[in-house]
């Protein structure tokens, strides 16, 4: 019995230390990515190329999801607001929900599963096929040449995608609320404009998506770079990217919300 407890505690300790070691390595990797960003920012076409693969390729899913989420919000909130005779607040609620929360968070979750997993798989595959080793042997630093451009591309793309998501969502809410359910168009927009503050809500939303962009791409490039260089290793790392970054997004969202909208 004592022996079993001992083994259990040992296992617990081991898993904790190895997790901490991995976290430490990930942090070191993050710092190295920033340090070696010179090449990527000097030769900016490297980043532009990756913006195409992370940003442009995620645009369709972001725009379509944004539209549908906004339309659903329009329907759902209208039902509830109508009960209290305050359907005129529909625009405000749709806009605030999207700009403060759903825009940054859902766009980041979609981004993690669309672009994050692709980044992990690509870097992992380059590692498995020794392309990263080959690069090292050609005296080219893979962190500077492969990791940093992808990282910056993600950081640039994420706020833009989140803004597109929110904008599409508000249009979706408008389509349902105004065109379909008959809320007054002026009330819809005026209520929204009266309650949405540019600095308080929109800028904070952009800051959120910026932070999520850093988190998702950091996890994605790290998982790819750190993965087992085998087929199973790459697929496992891809799954881990999506799971870890989704959890990290939600946790970070809570922390950020607690700080940003404390008074409001």
């Amino acid at each position: 019995m004592l022996n079993k407890a001992n083994v259990f505690l040992q296992g617990l300790g081991f898993s904790l230390t190895s997790r901490m070691a991995r976290l430490g390595f990930a942090s070191k990797f993050f710092v190295m990515t920033l340090l070696y960003s010179g090449t990527a920012l000097r030769r900016f076409h490297l980043v532009v190329r990756e913006v195409y693969f992370t940003g442009v390729m995620s645009m369709i899913i972001i725009l379509v999801s944004g539209l549908f989420v906004g339309m659903v919000l329009g329907l759902q909130l209208y039902q509830t607001l109508q009960t209290y005779g305050s359907a005129s607040a529909l625009g405000t609620l749709v806009a605030l929900t999207l700009v403060r929360e759903l825009g940054p968070v859902v766009a980041a979750l979609l981004f993690a599963s669309r672009a994050g997993s692709a980044i992990t798989a690509e870097i992992g595959l380059m590692k498995a096929t020794e392309q990263l080793s080959a690069m090292e042997m050609m005296a080219v630093n893979p962190i500077a040449r492969v990791v940093a451009p992808r990282f910056w591309a993600g950081v640039i793309s994420m706020p833009l995608l989140a803004a597109m998501f929110s904008a599409m969502g508000i249009l979706g809410g408008y389509l349902i609320g105004v065109q379909h359910l008959g809320v007054d168009s002026g009330t819809f927009w005026s209520q929204m404009q009266a309650s949405v503050d540019v600095r308080e809500d929109i800028v904070n939303g952009v800051i959120k998506s910026f932070v999520f962009g850093i988190i998702v791409t950091w996890i994605a490039v790290f998982e790819g770079y750190d993965c087992e260089p085998t087929a199973e290793g790459v697929s496992g790392a891809t799954t881990r990217t999506v799971v870890t970054s989704s959890l990290a997004i939600l946790a970070a969202d809570f922390v950020l919300t607690a700080f940003m909208f404390r008074g409001a």
């Binding site: 940003g55 442009v56 806009a95 833009l160 597109m164 904008a167 809500d201």
Partner: peptide, 21 residues
């Protein structure tokens, strides 16, 4: 990429001008 960035900026502009105050 240019189109993408432009779309993003339009979205941001929409949010601050049309949705905001």
């Amino acid at each position: 990429v240019g189109f993408f960035v432009a779309a993003g900026i339009v979205a941001l502009g929409f949010l601050s001008l049309k949705v905001g105050t």
